[in-house]
């Protein structure tokens, strides 16, 4: 497996501080699109601000960011457009926020999706992470709020988490700008293909459903050989998601 679990020191050497330029709202001519997803109140906007130098509204309220915000940064000659998505608990329902987030990850085809999670509430956050990993295979987990986790005596084995999820994991305290250089380096490694992810697939599903999903996703794969998320589309079809059915019919996925 090609996943490199990162700890702080490993990356300090890689990171090229001179190569970083925060570009604010200037999102023209970008090379890569990076989406910021995650549960509400995990610090996505704080990470966004740290990366772009902007001052998106943050707040200790689940659901602060409602529409998506965009910004950009440049690192080692490449320009990255960053999109701050509204926080959601899941992508399986149909509320407006979820639609914005889901549609962007699914149809916006970001080059990297950074999933910002709260290290103190890992289990709940993984619910969303596992769903995103069914949709995209280019993702980075930003394990935010590490300072609070430390205060709460929560210790996380980064290596094992990265191995289980199949994507790089970067611990951070975005508010204090800790872990941001490592995050930038990792984003650039995933975007350039230096790190290949092998994302976790949901396992604990009843047999009859697994069976149905398998049949459907094989058929979908045959029709759309290039998509990474045939299994997820199968989930949505079984749920009767009209938006996905329409998308299939209109051929957005090709």
């Amino acid at each position: 497996m090609d996943v490199l679990p990162h700890s702080n020191c490993e990356n300090c050497q890689h990171f090229n501080a001179d190569g970083l330029k925060k570009l604010g709202v200037d999102t023209t001519d970008f090379d890569f699109v990076v989406a910021l997803a995650g549960n509400p109140n995990t610090g996505k906007s704080t990470v966004f601000n740290a990366l772009t130098g902007l001052r998106q509204h943050t707040g200790n309220w689940p659901g602060k960011t409602v529409t998506r915000a965009e910004g950009a940064f440049q690192y080692n000659e490449k320009k990255y457009k960053l999109v701050d998505l509204p926080g959601t608990y899941s992508l399986l329902s149909t509320s407006d926020d979820e639609e914005v987030a889901r549609n962007f990850i699914l149809f916006g085809k970001p080059d990297v999706t950074v999933i910002v999670v709260d290290a103190n509430r890992l289990e709940r956050n993984l619910n969303l992470v596992l769903q995103i990993l069914e949709i995209t295979d280019k993702a980075v987990l930003c394990l935010n709020l590490m300072d609070e986790a430390k205060r709460n005596n929560i210790e996380i084995n980064i290596r094992s988490l990265a191995k289980d999820l199949g994507i790089p994991v970067v611990p951070a305290s975005a508010r204090y700008k800790e872990g941001i250089p490592e995050l930038i380096q990792t984003i650039s490694d995933v975007a350039s293909g230096k790190i290949i992810c092998k994302p976790h697939r949901i396992k604990n599903i009843p047999k009859d459903i697994e069976e149905a999903v398998k049949i459907l996703s094989l058929k979908i794969k045959k029709e759309f050989p290039n998509i990474p998320n045939s299994r997820w589309i199968a989930f949505r079809l079984l749920e009767g998601d009209n938006q996905i059915i329409e998308a299939l019919e209109s051929g957005v996925f090709v």
Binding site: E123, D164, P206
Partner: peptide, 24 residues
């Protein structure tokens, strides 16, 4: 279906957390 899927995802999450969190 929806219930089963939601439960399945959380079951996966619980397994991963079991591995990764050292000191709850």
């Amino acid at each position: 279906f929806h219930d089963n899927l939601a439960e399945g995802i959380y079951a996966d999450a619980a397994e991963i957390v079991e591995d990764a969190i050292i000191d709850k």
